Simulated assay, not measured.
Amino acid sequence: MLNIGCHLSASKGFANMGREAIKLGGNTFQFFTRNPRGSKAKDIDEKDVQEFLKLIQENNFATILAHAPYTLNACSADENTRNFTIEVMKDDLARMEYIPNNFYNFHPGSHVKQGVEMGIEYISGMLNSVLTENQTTTVLLETMAGKGTEVGRTFEELQEIIKRVKLSNKVGICLDTCHVYDAGYDIVSNLDNVLEQFDKVIGLNKLCAIHLNDSMNPFESHKDRHQKIGEGSIGLDAIINIINHPALRKLPFFLETPNELDGYAKEIRLLKENYLE
Rank of each mutant, 00 (worst) to 15 (best):
F103Q: 03
S76V: 07
T149N: 15
F61R: 00
E133G: 03
I99F: 10
L72M: 10
A77C: 10
V116A: 13
S39I: 14
T71L: 14
N80W: 03
F84C: 00
G13W: 05
Q114P: 10
V139L: 01
P108R: 09
G148R: 03
I22W: 00
D78G: 09
R82S: 06
S129L: 04
L53W: 02
Q57T: 09
D45P: 04
F106K: 05
E150I: 04
L127K: 04
K113M: 14
T137W: 05
L141M: 01
D43Q: 07
A62N: 10
A21V: 13
Y98A: 15
S9N: 11
I56A: 03
E87G: 01
T132I: 06
P108M: 12
F61Y: 05
L131S: 03
F106I: 10
K113V: 06
E46R: 08
P100H: 06
H107N: 09
D48S: 10
N105I: 08
E121W: 05
T33E: 10
T81C: 07
K47S: 12
G146T: 04
N134R: 12
T63F: 11
Q135E: 08
L8E: 02
F84M: 15
K90G: 00
N101G: 11
L131P: 05
G18E: 09
P69N: 08
N105Y: 05
E79C: 00
R95D: 02
S39V: 14
N134W: 12
E87H: 11
G38L: 12
E51V: 08
F103M: 07
T149V: 08
Y104G: 01
L8T: 05
V130M: 00
T81F: 06
F32L: 09
G13A: 08
N102Q: 14
M126Y: 01
K40E: 07
A77W: 03
T71C: 15
T143Y: 08
I123D: 02
Q50A: 13
T71I: 15
A62F: 11
R37D: 08
A77F: 05
A10N: 13
P36H: 08
E142I: 14
T81L: 13
N83M: 12
M118Q: 15
N35A: 13
V112N: 15
N105Q: 11
S11R: 11
G25S: 10
E87C: 00
T136L: 07
G26F: 04
V49F: 04
P100E: 12
F106N: 05
N59E: 01
T132E: 15
E87S: 11
G25D: 11
H107I: 11
G148Q: 12
Q114W: 01
L127T: 07
A21D: 08
K147R: 15
N60A: 13
T33R: 11
L131N: 03
A15L: 14
P69E: 08
C75M: 10
N134F: 03
E87P: 00
Y122G: 01
N59C: 01
M17H: 06
F31G: 02
T138R: 06
N73T: 10
K113C: 10
F32D: 04
G25R: 11
C75W: 07
Y98R: 14
Y122Q: 15
F29L: 07
E87F: 08
N73L: 09
P108D: 04
L55R: 02
Y70G: 14
E20L: 11
M118Y: 10
F29K: 05
N73P: 13
M144C: 13
D92T: 06
T143Q: 10
T71D: 01
A68G: 03
K90E: 02
L72P: 00
